[in-house]
C-alpha cells in the first residue's frame, strides 16, 4: 500500500472554491507525505494553501480531488459521525490563536474534549501532563489562559497552526488516547 510508513499520504490533492469566473483553486495537485515519528513542516507565503491542505488532511474540509490516506485510513469511506470520532481519537490541532476558554485552567481546557460519561467533571483535570506545563515554567496547568504562553512556546511567534496526529495503533490497541493518558482520571 502506498501509505506504508506514512502517517499522512496525499497524492494530487485538489481543492477549489466556487465555480466559473469566481472559482479559486486553493490546492492544485498536492503530493505530501508525513512519516511516522517525524516532525514535518509546511512553509510558504500566505495564501499558498498550507492551512487548506492541513484542513483537508484532517477531514475538516472536503477535497475536490486526489487521494488521501491518514493513519492508514481512507476517510472517504467514513460517515460524517465516524469521521468526527476518528478526528477526536487520533488527530489534534494546536492553533497559534489558541481559542482557549478563559474561565478554565490550562488543564481543564485540555480536558474539555474528553468523553464525559467516562470522566466525571471533578476528576478530569487532576493530573495534567507535560503538555500543560509549558516550557520553562514549573507548572502552568492550574493557571488560566492569559497567564501562560502559546502552546508551541513563546519563542515561536509563527502565524500558522500546528497539527499533530497519532498512530493508527490506538485504534486497534487497548491503549488510551494520548490526551486521556496525560489527564488521568
Amino acid at each position: 500500500m502506498e501509505s506504508n510508513g506514512h502517517a499522512i499520504w496525499c497524492h494530487d490533492i485538489q481543492k477549489h472554491y466556487g465555480e466559473g469566473e469566481t472559482r479559486i483553486d486553493a490546492l492544485r495537485g498536492v503530493d505530501f507525505k508525513a512519516r511516522f515519528g517525524e516532525l514535518s513542516f509546511l512553509v510558504g507565503p500566505s495564501g499558498c494553501g498550507k492551512t487548506t491542505l492541513l484542513c483537508v488532511i484532517a477531514g475538516l474540509l472536503d477535497r475536490s480531488g486526489g487521494d488521501l490516506t491518514v493513519l492508514g485510513q481512507n476517510l472517504d469511506g467514513l460517515s460524517d459521525g465516524d469521521r468526527v470520532l476518528f478526528r477526536r481519537k487520533n488527530l489534534g490541532f494546536v492553533f497559534q490563536q489558541y481559542n482557549l476558554l478563559p474561565a478554565l485552567t490550562a488543564a481543564e481546557n485540555v480536558a474539555v474534549p474528553l468523553p464525559r460519561p467516562r470522566f466525571r467533571a471533578k476528576r478530569r483535570w487532576i493530573a495534567p501532563g507535560p503538555s500543560c506545563r509549558g516550557s520553562g515554567s514549573k507548572d502552568a496547568s492550574r493557571r488560566f489562559p492569559p497567564s501562560f504562553p502559546a502552546a508551541s512556546n513563546n519563542a515561536s511567534r509563527s502565524p500558522g497552526l500546528s497539527f499533530t496526529s497519532r498512530g493508527s495503533s490506538y485504534a486497534t490497541s487497548q491503549r488510551r488516547p494520548w490526551t486521556m493518558r496525560r489527564v488521568r482520571p
Binding site: F36, G37, F41, L42, S158, P159, S162, F163, T164, S165
Partner: peptide, 9 residues
C-alpha cells in the same frame, strides 16, 4: 505511531 505537521513562517 505519531506524526506532527507544523505550519509556520
Amino acid at each position: 505511531d505519531r506524526a506532527v505537521v507544523v505550519v509556520t513562517h
